[in-house]
């Protein structure tokens, strides 16, 4: 459907629907919008580029602070990084009681927090800025580009499945494989042969629900935020010298500013929530039912 709409948009100025559909289509390895809901032969190139570059940028920033870290009086940059790190370390200490596990999980939580914050922050760039630059640079005026990796379900589910794998690893590590399997069949309703299938079903549902809701929550927030930015951009695009157009343009400025300011909260909050849930889920993997 979207492919069709965009081809139409090539012939004349895009309608509002075409504009939004175009903006919501990924630059992937097929060159057009993905036809099937699930197709593991396709990569979203834009998500990968921005996800990896934001990760690299975030880690480079942290690494610079780490390589210059002194026990003396810290500079502002070092102090800022230390504040974030201590916040994460405190949360990890409160949730995960094994110091050995914290050696991996706490840095993982810090990475997730800073990385997601950076990826979410891409949402604050004007929605048309990077796509326009890319369209001009590539010479294809209908090239697709979505710059927010966390507004791509693949990006967020990729991370939440990563958290799931960490949970499974610690389940086995802390309880032993036998102990974990026993837990799978004996919790939450109790250890009884009749209840075993029910228990196992509940456990599967629990893991699936945790992982999917973990990824979906971030995706939904960022996707909706991106969509609102696009709708606001449509108001500005209506500028055509008429009075209504001028009023819409003013509306764009006001609504855009308000939504961007509010979005600063969402960006930080969603990064924090993702980090906290990662800690809580790995913490649960340490506790027997």
């Amino acid at each position: 459907m979207s492919e069709h709409a965009v081809e139409q948009a090539a012939n004349h100025g895009p309608t509002a629907g075409e504009y939004i559909v175009h903006h919501l289509t990924h630059w992937n390895t097929t060159g057009h919008a993905q036809a099937k809901i699930v197709d593991f032969s396709v990569f979203n190139v834009d998500t990968l580029i921005f996800s990896v570059s934001m990760g690299a940028l975030a880690l480079f920033m942290l690494w610079r602070a780490a390589s210059k870290a002194t026990s003396g009086v810290p500079g502002r940059f070092q102090a800022a990084v230390e504040i974030v790190l201590e916040m994460v370390a405190d949360q990890a200490k409160g949730i995960i009681h094994s110091a050995e596990s914290r050696k991996f999980i706490a840095p993982l939580a810090l990475t997730v927090f800073v990385w997601i914050f950076f990826m979410n922050a891409l949402d604050l760039l004007p929605v048309d800025l990077l796509p326009l630059i890319w369209q001009t640079a590539s010479g294809d005026h209908h090239a697709y580009l979505r710059i927010v990796p966390t507004a791509d379900l693949n990006g967020t589910l990729g991370m939440s499945i990563g958290v799931l794998l960490v949970c499974l690893y610690y389940n086995v590590k802390i309880k032993g494989f036998g102990g974990w399997v026993h837990e799978l069949f004996s919790a939450p309703f109790g250890s009884h042969p009749v209840l075993a299938p029910l228990n196992f079903m509940m456990q599967l549902i629990e893991f699936a629900a945790k992982t999917i809701s973990h990824g979906m929550r971030l995706f939904g927030n960022m996707y909706a935020g991106e969509l609102v930015f696009m709708l606001i951009a449509l108001m500005g695009a209506a500028w055509a010298g008429s009075f209504t157009g001028a009023a819409l343009w003013v509306g764009h400025v006001i609504a855009g500013s308000m939504w961007a300011i509010f979005h600063i909260l969402i960006i930080t909050l969603q990064a924090f929530i993702f980090m906290m849930l990662a800690l809580v889920y790995t913490g649960q993997a340490h506790e027997g039912h």
Binding site: I37, V42, L59, A69, P107, L110, F219
Partner: peptide, 30 residues
């Protein structure tokens, strides 16, 4: 919102970044 192989790439990136933080960022600051 389609699912594709980006998911696995993101999964790999996730662990690489976490490993980097664990090895080079967290210990010196702590």
């Amino acid at each position: 919102m389609n699912l594709n192989a980006t998911l696995f790439a993101q999964l790999a990136v996730f662990f690489i970044l976490a490993w980097f933080t664990m090895s080079f960022v967290w210990p010196p600051i702590v």
